[in-house]
């Protein structure tokens, strides 16, 4: 008794091994829904590989050119030049291929986030019940460290790029849902009524009035989702995602300062450029208000 109350360490008598049940659950899921998981896995892998293939098919100077043009269009010409130079720097570190792997996971996750997130954000404004479920879920998701998502992803999809995409998507999707919802909700009521008063259907009102009005807000959501995806991809190196994050991880394990520095700096560069360019796009899409 005394031992139970006063010892500094947690008593061994109180044990509850929950892990075994989770193991059962996963096995049960795999047994019954294995085909579904496989189909999802194959689908994601296919998209991912196509994107990566494409990124590697474009010649290196083509990528630099695109980045320059984006920087020029959405910021200014000096920004375009700077971004292109910075990406050139990543290539000169010998990390071009890793960068493309990282980018392809980010792009795949963002695309999935948009395809899933924007409709959810829209539906939430109409279906109160959906909102009651989704809102607290998003709150919970945003308080969780990204690290935690690795576990279910690995349990259900194993190691590699696919669970990385899934974990990244799940981690990065809240902002686009939230801001789509916010954007649609904030469209002036009178404007929506005006649309209805002319006999617009709900669809027409959505794509002729609400979506264009909400676009700047949705763009902000896309920017945030992209940035979160990038930060998560790095963490996903732990479950076997190739890319810049994996380089950092290896460098840490080997205490290889040179390699760590180069890959670390590359991630920072990527983050800055993606943020600046998407910010620029957001600003360009501001809707003039009354």
């Amino acid at each position: 008794m005394q031992q139970l109350l006063f010892m500094g360490s947690f008593p061994e008598a109180i044990t509850f091994k929950v892990g075994i049940y989770v193991d059962w659950l996963v096995k049960w899921l795999m047994h019954n829904f294995g085909d579904i998981f496989n189909a999802i896995s194959d689908g994601i892998l296919w998209v991912l590989l196509k994107i990566e293939e494409f990124l590697l098919w474009v010649p290196w100077w083509g990528i630099l050119l695109v980045i320059f043009l984006l920087g020029w269009r959405y910021k200014k010409i000096t920004a375009g030049l700077l971004y292109a130079f910075l990406v050139l720097l990543i290539g000169s570190f010998g990390l071009w291929g890793y960068m493309m792997s990282t980018l392809s996971v980010v792009l795949t996750s963002v695309v999935i986030s948009l395809i899933v997130g924007i409709p959810i954000g829209i539906l939430m404004t109409y279906k109160d019940k959906l909102e009651i479920i989704v809102k607290p879920t998003l709150d919970a998701m945003q308080t969780m460290p990204g690290f935690v998502y690795l576990i279910p992803a690995v349990l259900l999809f194993g190691m590699g790029m696919v669970p990385a995409v899934i974990a990244t998507t799940v981690y990065a999707i809240p902002p686009v849902i939230r801001l789509t919802n916010l954007g649609i909700k904030n469209v002036s009521k009178e404007m929506v009524e005006a649309a209805h008063s002319f006999g617009s259907s709900n669809w027409q009102t959505l794509y002729k009035v609400q979506l264009p009005q909400a676009l700047p807000t949705i763009m902000t959501g896309i920017n945030q989702t992209t940035m979160m995806a990038l930060s998560m991809v790095v963490i996903c190196s732990m479950i076997g995602a190739r890319g810049l994050g994996m380089e950092v991880l290896i460098a840490i394990n080997r205490i290889d300062i040179a390699r760590g520095f180069e890959s670390g700096v590359s991630i920072v560069i990527l983050a800055i450029i993606i943020d600046r360019i998407t910010q620029g796009i957001v600003n360009r899409h501001k809707v003039p208000q009354q």
Binding site: S188, E190, M191, E193, A194, A195, H196, S197, F198, G199, S200, S201, K208, V209, P212, Q213, L215, V287, P288, Q289, Q290
Partner: peptide, 21 residues
């Protein structure tokens, strides 16, 4: 109702209700 709104009746709003985009 949609047809009625499209053809028979139109509304002018206090704060104009113009589509700013």
């Amino acid at each position: 109702l949609r047809e009625f709104r499209q053809k028979k009746v139109a509304m002018v709003f206090q704060h104009f209700g113009l589509l700013t985009h």
